[in-house]
């Protein structure tokens, strides 16, 4: 990803989602009321988190092929993904408090996120406990691939096997109407794409910074 166009595109898309997300028309639904607009700000965190973890997976596979610097990239993308996941979790908890009445409920999607964060925390711990760079690249790469597969199983497959409180699952009023709502869709997709670009940008900045720092210490 060369050039500056995507670094401009990301913030522009998010600005669009902020202004149209607040102003644009949304379906009138009970319980959700105006909080349906959270869709534009909370859900893109999850989508962009998964995108970051996917990038991390790709670089981990490259790291197993002994590609120079791939391990660092995998790590930084996982970090950005973790940041986005934390933001998504916190915003989700605030929303859940006012919609479901509690900050934390035992919902498959919430559990999935918590587990994802624990898996990636373990990945960070593993990476920090190995000194030698080549060995670290291999161990962390192996673990990251495993982690990604388990994350996809946990957030993608298991929730479909059980009921979820989340809007759109099992008789809950909510977002499954948004699939039909043509007003919401473009804003939502713009927000997702915008946050993915921002995530790429932050990761890229951190990777460049780390490379500079490493070059200096050598």
């Amino acid at each position: 990803m060369k050039g500056i166009w995507w670094k401009l595109l990301g913030p522009l898309l998010i600005l669009y989602s902020i202004s149209m997300g607040l102003y644009g028309p949304v379906p009138r639904l009970p319980i959700l009321n105006e909080t349906i607009r959270v869709l534009y700000y909370h859900v893109p965190m999850w989508f962009s988190m998964i995108a970051m973890m996917l990038a991390s997976l790709i670089f981990s596979i490259q790291a197993l092929g002994e590609k120079e610097g791939a391990d660092l990239k995998a790590f930084e993308f996982a970090r950005t993904g973790f940041l986005l996941a934390s933001l998504g979790l916190i915003t989700g908890m605030v929303w859940a408090r006012f919609t479901w009445g509690a900050f934390w409920v035992n919902d498959p999607k919430l559990n999935g996120t918590a587990v994802t964060m624990l898996i990636y925390l373990a990945y960070f711990v593993l990476r920090s406990s190995v000194e030698e760079a080549q060995k670290r690249a291999r161990l962390a790469g192996v673990y990251n691939i495993f982690a990604f597969v388990m994350m996809i199983v946990f957030i993608g497959i298991l929730p479909r096997m059980t009921d979820s409180l989340h809007p759109g699952n099992g008789g809950n009023p909510g977002f499954n109407q948004y699939d039909l709502d043509s007003n919401m869709r473009p804003i939502f997709y713009a927000a997702v794409l915008g946050w993915i670009l921002i995530g790429l940008w932050i990761s890229q900045l951190r990777i460049r910074y780390k490379k500079l720092r490493d070059a200096k210490t050598i």
């Binding site: 913030p11 998010i14 202004s19």
Partner: peptide, 17 residues
């Protein structure tokens, strides 16, 4: 509200730039 939220976000983006 829209202007305030946009300004905050523009600030963050400018910082990144």
């Amino acid at each position: 509200v829209i202007i305030i939220m946009s300004l905050i976000f523009i600030g963050v983006a400018a910082y990144l730039f």
